Structures are given as C-alpha cells and as structure tokens.
Simulated assay, not measured.
Amino acid sequence: MATIRFFAAAAESAAADAAAIDAATIGDLRAQLTSLYGDEFERILGRCSLLVNGTRATDDTVPLSGSDTVDVLPPFAGG
C-alpha cells in the first residue's frame, strides 16, 4: 500500500494527515480518495499537486507501487 500524506486544506478535508491506499495509478488513487473522503475533498484534490516520491505526477497514468509515498499538496499562498 502506498503512503498518502495530506497537507493544509487536503488534511483538513480528509480529517487526517496520512492514509495507506492500494492503488495501481494516480487516477485510481484519485478515485479511491474521492470515494473515501467525499465531494469537498474531490474539489480540493482537483486543485492539488500530487508528488510521487518527490516527483510531480503529471497525469493519471503514473503508476504506483506499495513502497511509494504520495504527497497531496494544495496550492500555497504567501509572500
């Protein structure tokens, strides 16, 4: 199972900092997260960057393995 780490608004919406999910691809992961955490999380997820082991996942076909760590990063603001 991949380790999923949530940050900022994603963590608030999921009411968790992390989860373990068995998903074959980023697209599968998105579907499972939406199913688990609901419509508001899906809205936030649509604006997030997903990093797999520190590398941005650019599309839903990016494969995942059980040893991967996926960071769910909402847009940050600041100055």
Results as ranks from 00 to 15, higher is better:
Pro74His: 08
Ile26Glu: 00
Met1Glu: 00
Ala18Asn: 13
Ala23Tyr: 00
Ile26Thr: 07
Arg56Glu: 15
Leu73Phe: 08
Leu36Met: 12
Asp60Glu: 10
Ser35Tyr: 01
Gly78His: 10
Ala9Asp: 08
Gly46Cys: 06
Asp22Ser: 13
Asp68Ile: 02
Gly27Tyr: 00
Leu73Gln: 07
Ala19Gln: 07
Met1Ser: 10
Ile26His: 03
Gly46Ala: 11
Leu33Glu: 09
Leu29Met: 08
Leu45Asp: 03
Gly46Gln: 02
Thr3Lys: 13
Cys48Val: 10
Leu33His: 03
Gly38Glu: 00
Ser49Gln: 13
Ser13Ile: 12
Cys48Gln: 01
Arg30Thr: 01
Ala77His: 13
Phe41Ile: 09
Leu50Ile: 08
Ala31Leu: 13
Gly27Val: 02
Gly54Ser: 04
Arg30Leu: 01
Leu64Gly: 05
Val62Ala: 11
Leu36Glu: 13
Val72Lys: 03
Ala15Asp: 15
Val62Tyr: 02
Ala19Pro: 07
Gly46His: 11
Ala77Thr: 15
Ala15Phe: 12
Glu12Lys: 10
Ser35Gln: 06
Leu36Lys: 13
Gly78Leu: 09
Cys48Leu: 09
Thr25Asp: 14
Gly66Gln: 05
Gly79Ile: 06
Asp68Thr: 02
Tyr37Leu: 12
Ala9Tyr: 05
Met1Leu: 09
Ala23Cys: 00
Ala9Gly: 03
Thr61Tyr: 11
Ser13Trp: 10
Leu45Gly: 04
Ile4Leu: 09
Val52Arg: 08
Ala24Ile: 02
Asp59His: 04
